[in-house]
Nucleic acid binder design. Sequence first.
DNA 1: GTTTGACCTTGCCATAATGGTAAGGTTTAG
DNA 2: CTAAACCTTACCATTATGGCAAGGTCAAAC
Lengths: 134, 134
Amino acid sequence: MATLLTIGDAAKASGLSAKMIRHYEQSGLLKKSPRTDAGYRLYNTEQINQLRFIRQARNLGFSLHDIQSLLALWQDPQRESRAVKQLAQQHLDEIAGKIAELQHMQQVLTALADSCRGDGSPHCHILQQLAKPG
Amino acid sequence: MATLLTIGDAAKASGLSAKMIRHYEQSGLLKKSPRTDAGYRLYNTEQINQLRFIRQARNLGFSLHDIQSLLALWQDPQRESRAVKQLAQQHLDEIAGKIAELQHMQQVLTALADSCRGDGSPHCHILQQLAKPG
DNA sequence: GTTTGACCTTGCCATAATGGTAAGGTTTAG
DNA sequence: CTAAACCTTACCATTATGGCAAGGTCAAAC
């Protein structure tokens, strides 16, 4: 039986917001939904699965741009897993880059914070360091 | 002697872009610059130092909103270092949160990528997992 | 003295992903 | 029949940054 859900139920079923589902459709990530006579969007099981796919990819931090590629690969029986793995690897590189950047900030700022008394006096190594020409 | 720089030179001297310096002024982070008769913004040494301060705080990932507070504290001789340290600590917490989030993605995605052959065959554990109802 | 190139000005648009709000139509339950 | 809970579109906001365009300015070279 073809279970058809309106957007609110599709949102609940997928874990996305209705707002975002509309947005994904409008930005071309999703095909346009069929509509009721009143103009309500309707989603079938296959589309719900697609929404879930998107949510899980978003949870892994993939951009909508990448997700478009992932969806295409998913739906292509001729795909080569090489292509998928490459996308994943690129994303992992990005993640590693961001982590490194954040860890660097963390390290520098932790050192600064450690050398700030954090009491009622105005003396503060953090401000001093930020003010330095370096 | 009062060295006055135009915005391009102030940009070079501070490591910010001229675009961003204008933006910071317009968003209230910086006081409005004095101008030449022709309308060119001029920056003195003190303002260059302020721009450097902003750049260094940005490099540590502070938001412009936080930087506004940091600048105010910097310029307040009555400040308590407690306040600065608290801002730093909040930011450190945010950084730690982001790192944790990214590391989680990294961990999950690495496991998936490791179990994808990445060859010419269509079979791919990454896609399989993204498609799962979980 | 004029031209030219390197500046400067403002203003508008774009990014990425998401949320909010408003004004209005629909459906369903009471 | 009405009220609540949906749905629709359209516009605005976020964050920090970049780009472009149209036009004014200044300095150096000719």
